[in-house]
Nucleic acid binder design. Sequence first.
DNA 1: GAACAATGCAAGTGACCGCTTACATCTGAT
DNA 2: ATCAGATGTAAGCGGTCACTTGCATTGTTC
Lengths: 206, 206
Amino acid sequence: MQTEPVKKSSRPAAGTRERLLEAAMKVFARDGLHKATTRGIAEEAGVNEVTLFRHFQNKDGLLAAVISQAVQSHAGDGLDDARWNGDLKKSLHHFAKTLYANLVRDEAFIRTMVGEAHRHPDYAQKVILDAVQPMRARFIGNLEAARKNGQVRRGLDLGVAADTFTAMLFGGMLRHTGGCAEDYTAEKYVATCVEIFASGLAPVRP
Amino acid sequence: MQTEPVKKSSRPAAGTRERLLEAAMKVFARDGLHKATTRGIAEEAGVNEVTLFRHFQNKDGLLAAVISQAVQSHAGDGLDDARWNGDLKKSLHHFAKTLYANLVRDEAFIRTMVGEAHRHPDYAQKVILDAVQPMRARFIGNLEAARKNGQVRRGLDLGVAADTFTAMLFGGMLRHTGGCAEDYTAEKYVATCVEIFASGLAPVRP
DNA sequence: GAACAATGCAAGTGACCGCTTACATCTGAT
DNA sequence: ATCAGATGTAAGCGGTCACTTGCATTGTTC
């Protein structure tokens, strides 16, 4: 289907595994874990199907490798602590825009994971532990710092609060990218999340 | 596997279609749209596979019927306007608890729909239009009423705000029911959503 | 240029899937 | 008693899938 005029006759042992991983990520996300076929993945990678089985014992091994790689590549991007100095609302907005963009970028893969989570609890847990927990911890830390600055009221569990915020963005991404045509832009949605969350955290004025 | 000592020798033409729909809902949710097999669904329903094809032309027709029925059965439950009279926070809490319980009840089906949405945009859209839009409209209406009571500040698009709230609950459900073991209860999560959202909507005190 | 490892290629295996056909059986209404 | 319609049973068809085997080819390294 896709004509890749390059290579094909070169056998440099170069990046075959990487090309397979990339293709698998794409096909798994596009077709779902079960509908995706090893033939399709190999074709997408421009590689013989047998080579796929030589690199990864079976389809499941390939999936595990894909998840491992995807998680590593995404961990750590996003929020840089340096931006969390000044105004809480501005920092939140920057964080929200970055996170939302990442969510949109990985939409297909995320949807597949959400749909398949209760059929592969081990993989789902790995994704969550390795990819979202570090970000969550840093986010909570920044909220705590903001509380010390007096920008956040007391009496709130900041761990739970942080999860409500990311859930807002996560759910909004699913809604927007889904067929559900909204009457507002993603930017407005993100801004509203920040507005409501920041006001919700703010200390009550006496 | 499942021993159903009743019936099996009775052929009362009774509820065969309904049993098939129920079984299909269950198997689709459990195994995913593609992994689910017509044989498995028929077996789950205690019905011959051929009967399945006599009632629904093909697997896709069965899926469409399942979605139709599921959407109808869920539309309209949840929030009763009568409860939206007094305190906004209390009303929100009642709404949130009801919605969250419904989300948890249909977790498997919801996950399947989320994962399959971009492969069946037509079905996804039908689900959204028929099931979530009516609830959304009523929720927005109630928020507008609360604003007239002076419980909600101006300058917020209540449609967007409503979506951020349901997204919080939606994302929280996915997180909790996923393998991700949290250190807080679902009740605390829901209460925190309400707390932050209500404070976020409240008018700023001068 | 020889040895070696990676890859391609062709073919196949057993299993399962969606779906169909042909025929027997049972039930309920007339 | 009969007849129609719904269901069951058995068998199969064409297709796809995950995965394997055997062998040829190619590039790299020494």
